[in-house]
Amino acid sequence: MSVLVDENTRVVVQGITGGEGKFHTEQMLEYGTNVVAGAVPGKGGQAVAGVPVYDTVDRAAREEDANAAVVFVPPAFAADACFEALDAPVDLVVAITEGIPTQDMSKVYRKLQETDTHLVGPNCPGVITPGVAKLGILPGNIFSSGNVGLVSRSGTLTYQVVDNLTERGLGQTTAIGIGGDPIIGTDFIDALELFEADPDTHAVVMCGEIGGEDEEEAARYIGANMDTPVVGFIAGRTAPPGKRMGHAGAIVSGSGTGTAQSKIDALENAGTPVGDTPEEVADHVEDIL
């Protein structure tokens, strides 16, 4: 078992004819992902890496039975691409695009509340169920199949933690990169809920970072609702207030909210051990399993 992505996932890639879209479609196919269609306005009838391209997501979904979309569309048009996927509809939208205006995402988020679709991202590395399929840009070779669920706000930090897990023989059910933007679709709690319901996920690793209060809310959720053990990691302990650390969402505000310490305290209060280093995260998981 797994969450969000399995052998029945049929993917339409939005922006498949662009540089990133094309490259990662090839990578996804190579990993075994069932990429069944591309969607690019005006490019219908073409093919990329053997995948047929349609002018609209609606047509791609109808002709090829696509039930998931991956968005590689430039930021100015990415919100529109998300709406198109939500309206198709598909069950899962993974938005890779970085730099989508926040007010656009606010409107997408509002629409999302009216649908049953899961949106992952934007500004995220994607979702992978090791050995089955990946949707996004995650390097497949570092993942291995197993019983650990992983949810993270950051791409390369996900890779680092997965690498530490895989090296110990601790494989993953599914890894979800939820993205570092201020407004995202699937948040920590949504992902934890999915893992809690998955019988094959025996432990969850949650990688957070400074900024916002999502980790604190997730900690409250863990304390109240989860039987599956969770191990935490929080990046940004040394970040000074008022400075944006790369991600638009990663900032400790002047009034002191969003600090690493408040997140670590919240997780530990919920009975979730927090690793000081990625290596220690793997130690904790090993202890649990």
Partner: peptide, 22 residues
């Protein structure tokens, strides 16, 4: 990647050093 760079800063601090930048 922002998360990994932040983590590297934190590790420098963890091992007794002081980060000069992100």
């Amino acid at each position: 990647g922002a998360g990994l760079v932040m983590t590297t800063l934190d590790l420098v601090d963890h091992y007794g050093g002081q980060p000069a930048n992100f």
